[in-house]
Amino acid sequence: MSEVTASAVKVIAFQLVDKEYALPVEQVYSIEKLMHITRVPGTVPFVKGVINLRGVVTPIIDLRSRFGLSDERVDDSTRIIIAALDDMEVGLIVDGANDVLDIPTDAIEPQPEVVGSLGDEYITGVAKLDKRLLIMLSLQKIFN
């Protein structure tokens, strides 16, 4: 691989309430518009249900309720990010997916002691890019 990729990570940046979050691009399969979600009874509250993703039944997690943020609000910019970890494919409901960015690895800092209300167990680090602050997420922790 070239030096550029070695010193930078490509991420998908998305909006949730008032903050920007990021997931490594390799973990993201696709970004979908909101579609009909079939509720699955007897699951944890943050699992909204399942969707038909081109013939594959895919479970959906509402990131707002996963992070204990304010109630869901659906508008035109609401998206489902289909992310995959190991052999699990899960959709994440976010307020808007807006960017693919290259973040230099040296711009990523460990999580400061206090960042908003979000529990730091989901966070692998914080990236500062010009004036933007991106919170890097760990899928592993979100899925559990």
Binding site: P41, G42, N52, V57, P59
Partner: peptide, 22 residues
Amino acid sequence: LGNYLSSVFAISGATILGDGQV
């Protein structure tokens, strides 16, 4: 239902209907 939702009570699986819903 995928690996993530491996065991849900009283649900053995899912199917996709003619209207594309699950």
